[in-house]
Design a protein around this nucleic acid. Structure first.
Lengths: 107, 107
DNA sequence: TATCTATATAGCTATTAGGCTATATATTAA
DNA sequence: TTAATATATAGCCTAATAGCTATATAGATA
């Protein structure tokens, strides 16, 4: 995995609209309009988000009549998880601090 | 985990300089200057990156003489990994496409 | 107290990001 | 071929990001 690709993956994931899109796509592929509706955003804005997700490799596009169905591509998510996994030993080692952190976030 | 916090975590991770800092800190805490040296960046620029990492909860700061040692806080990394983990079943399901993707990245 | 070292902050610049509206393009349907 | 539907692109605006230099602050040492 190259640095530039991780850059794109993590920055794609940094936006809550895009994470919501991925979450929706985990339930199955969707048209652009189906993604626009719950977003409260304009169609062009959603298309722009989709382009960013596509450049990160997180979604791919099909073609069905006039629609361009969007589907989740999980490989980059795995790549990101692998990067994070290198720190797994570390966070296991500092279990107490972790507990405190997660408790703090519950509020 | 709240959305705004994941925003900060993922966007902190989106920058290669910051990922390099975390990688360095995995080997142990470091002073700001120790992080500046290999970065090729100015000290204020590194301090700015550290502030972003700190706001994401990814590092904490100590106090030792005039230095402010920086240490890794792995809890947010775990939080990010947990978010990604929700897709784990998904990427296991599409193993072939994943293989192709990772092969492509090797080049 | 004066100075040195380590770090932080202020303020500037260029670029990117995320939103919008208006319009173009592609495919289907009449 | 014309009209309708779905999506993409262009162009604009504002705010945030990443870099810099110059300067301020905190703590240690002379």
């Amino acid at each position: 995995m190259q640095h530039a690709q991780l850059d794109r993956i993590f920055s794609a994931l940094a936006d809550p609209t895009r994470r919501a899109i991925l979450n929706r796509l985990a339930k199955g592929e969707a048209t652009v309009n189906a993604l626009v509706e719950p977003s409260g955003l304009s169609q062009p804005t959603v298309s722009k988000h989709l382009k960013i997700l596509e450049q990160a490799g997180l979604v791919s596009r099909g073609r069905a009549a006039q629609t361009r169905p969007v589907r989740l591509e999980p490989a980059p998510l795995k790549a990101a998880a692998q990067w994070l996994g290198d720190y797994e030993a570390f966070w296991n080692a500092s279990y107490d601090r972790l507990e405190a952190y997660l408790k703090g976030e519950e509020r």
